[in-house]
Design a protein around this nucleic acid. Structure first.
Length: 319
DNA sequence: CGATTTTGACCCGCGC
DNA sequence: GCGCGGGTCAAAATCG
């Protein structure tokens, strides 16, 4: 799995061209993706993201105006999808960059862990002795109502599907995604006691965008040595804003600084801020592009307090 | 040879 | 009840 460590470097060239956003004048929170199509296809965008359930457990106090804190179910009404989409729209227009597209969690409770434990340990009861039966019973035990861990989705522009995030993952499944030519891959953390999973799929609206959805929280430190040049404050601040995200953002500390900054950058973009960091020169041009296609940005710029919480002030001078 | 990926089968929830 | 789509399992294949 660590075969694909090119994450950060994958996509420099991308540039730009391919995003509908760039060609669209309807940018402000609207049409980076063609959501009409998404909805038409009965596949809500949050479904596309795999973020199907939202929970009040996820607090995003400071970002409540721009994040996706409402609940929805798999069969969420189009409104929900749309509303979410608006937020997500901002994401994908970043060359080789990841962004917090949304945060979500299902109603998490103890049952979840309990169920998982049972699944792993209580197989003895089956009588058939056949492996198939084993499988079936496993499923039965969990059938009550499947509870899921909180999920957190990232959208990352990358040529590589499986992004290196500092943890080791084992692929345990792959499924074709409805209305998408790209399959969805299912990964599980290889650490024994860790039940974290993630799903990786490409956006069919823009194949250069990889949607990574994490589920659960790691119960162990990253096996990859942290060596990051990223100011600790980044993740810290992020974590304060995205409590759930913090767990995942910490992974990014173990990645290259560039990727970190792009994450920040994307998040700023996500928030509507024309963040421009000279050290991420690749983004500079992109930022301009974003500005071009995001005339509504200014409306968001007013909330500087939020931005300052998220990013060290020196990074914001651009404005 | 152990770890990981692939892949078809299976289960579940949901809508019709 | 049936079919569909999402998610998971696990045997087989592949990789290092």
């Amino acid at each position: 799995m660590e075969k694909k460590e090119m994450v950060v470097k994958t996509e420099d060239a991308v540039g730009s061209s391919s995003f509908p956003c760039y060609n669209s004048n309807v940018y402000p929170f609207s049409n980076a993706f063609d959501f009409s199509e998404v909805e038409k296809s009965s596949l809500g965008f949050m479904e596309l993201l795999g973020v199907q359930d939202y929970s009040p457990l996820l607090e995003l106090p400071q970002l409540s105006t721009v994040s996706v804190p409402h609940h929805s179910t798999v069969k969420a009404p189009p409104d929900n999808g749309k509303e979410c989409s608006e937020v997500l729209n901002h994401q994908p227009a970043t060359p080789n960059s990841s962004s917090i597209s949304s945060a979500s969690s299902d109603a998490v409770n103890d049952e979840q862990n309990k169920t998982l434990d049972q699944v792993e340990e209580d197989d003895d009861e089956e009588e058939e002795g056949q492996q198939k039966t084993k499988k079936q019973l496993k499923a039965k035990k969990t059938n009550q109502k499947r509870q899921r861990e909180p999920r957190f989705a990232f959208m990352t522009k990358s040529e590589v599907d499986h992004l290196e995030d500092g943890y080791r993952w084992r692929k345990y499944g792959q499924k074709a995604v409805k209305n998408s030519p790209f399959p969805r891959s299912y990964y599980r953390c290889t650490s024994v006691s860790c039940n974290v999973k993630k799903r990786v799929e490409r956006s069919f609206t823009d194949p250069s965008v990889v949607v990574t959805t994490y589920e659960g929280q790691h119960t162990h430190p990253s096996p990859v040595m942290p060596r990051s040049g990223v100011p600790a404050g980044y993740a810290t601040n992020f974590a304060s804003v995205f409590p759930q995200a913090g767990n995942y953002l910490s992974h990014y500390q173990e990645q290259q600084q560039h990727q970190q900054q792009q994450l920040i950058f994307n998040t700023l973009s996500f928030l509507g801020f024309p963040y421009n960091d000279s050290s991420t020169s690749k983004n500079a041009g992109f930022t301009q592009e974003r500005r071009l296609c995001n005339p509504g940005t200014n409306a968001f710029l007013r909330d500087h307090g939020l931005l300052q919480d998220v990013v060290p002030s020196h990074m914001l001078k651009e404005e």
